[in-house]
């Protein structure tokens, strides 16, 4: 395990180096560098519009960086063979075509990477959608779509998970379930990067935190180093954000 100083080390499975993405007027991601290590949950924290989603899209090769690079196991995502077997991603869970059945949605994803479709019933069971695999995705609630998205991310049994706001739309029980699942995935030695703007959730879920604001790195530390007895993570987060604004 790493020592939490934020210095890049050999254990970084996801490596982001000088990553920059400029849109016309704004700089969504600004010279961002961090690494994500295996065997723990790394929380990716920032206010709305801080650049979390853009960073994840850049790591997944969905967008082109203006400068810098992002790699998974030392390789740009786009050069991975059968990427779903190495990296599982959950971006916008609502970005599915409603006309398909849940099992059909997972079916095309599995087939695209040569993954056995025999895994699908078990995965639907795991995420709590065992009874609705033959239902159309269009009728799913946001929470059910998040569960389906998580099943899609786990389809290839990947070592690395990138999850963008996975607890959005989940009920309290679902949030608790998701937390337990992520912890067990990390305990299996997987690399788990979870973005969120919910500090309380991160405080009880993550082992390590990467905090960004306006596309810049604000903090990269173990959660135990950030949370003091006299201050909640929320207080610390606000201090960091305000510190950066000055």
């Amino acid at each position: 395990m790493r020592d939490g100083t934020g210095v890049a080390d050999r254990e970084g499975v996801i490596e982001v180096i000088g990553l920059t993405r400029r849109f016309k007027q704004t700089c969504a991601v600004d010279d961002l560098s961090f690494t994500v290590s295996p065997g723990m949950i790394t929380g990716f924290l920032g206010a709305n519009g801080a650049g979390k989603t853009t960073t994840m899209r850049l790591i997944l090769g969905l967008d082109r960086p203006t400068a810098g690079r992002a790699t998974v196991h030392g390789v740009p995502y786009r050069e991975l063979r059968r990427p779903l077997t190495q990296v599982g991603a959950l971006l916008d869970a609502t970005a599915v075509q409603g006309g398909r059945l849940a099992k059909q949605h997972l079916g095309w994803l599995a087939r695209s990477n040569g993954i056995s479709r025999g895994r699908i019933p078990g995965l639907l069971e795991l995420v709590g959608l065992g009874d609705v695999g033959h239902k159309r995705v269009g009728g799913f609630s946001l929470g059910m779509k998040q569960r389906l998205g998580l099943a899609a991310a786990l389809l290839g049994d990947p070592e690395v998970l990138l999850l963008d706001e996975p607890v959005n739309g989940l009920d309290p029980e679902g949030i608790r379930w998701m937390r337990g699942l992520l912890k067990s995935l990390a305990a299996e030695g997987r690399t788990v990067l979870v973005s969120s703007h919910l500090m309380h959730e991160m405080a009880v879920t993550a082992d390590h935190l990467i905090v960004i604001g306006r596309g810049r790195l604000l903090a990269d530390a173990k959660i135990t180093d950030l949370v003091r007895p006299d201050a909640s993570l929320e207080d610390v987060f606000m201090e960091i954000i305000e510190g950066s604004a000055r």
Partner: peptide
Amino acid sequence: SGEHTSGMIDMTFVATPS
């Protein structure tokens, strides 16, 4: 266009980056 409208095109490119 159906994939662009729904946003599912992202999942398509995550699964098949080329």
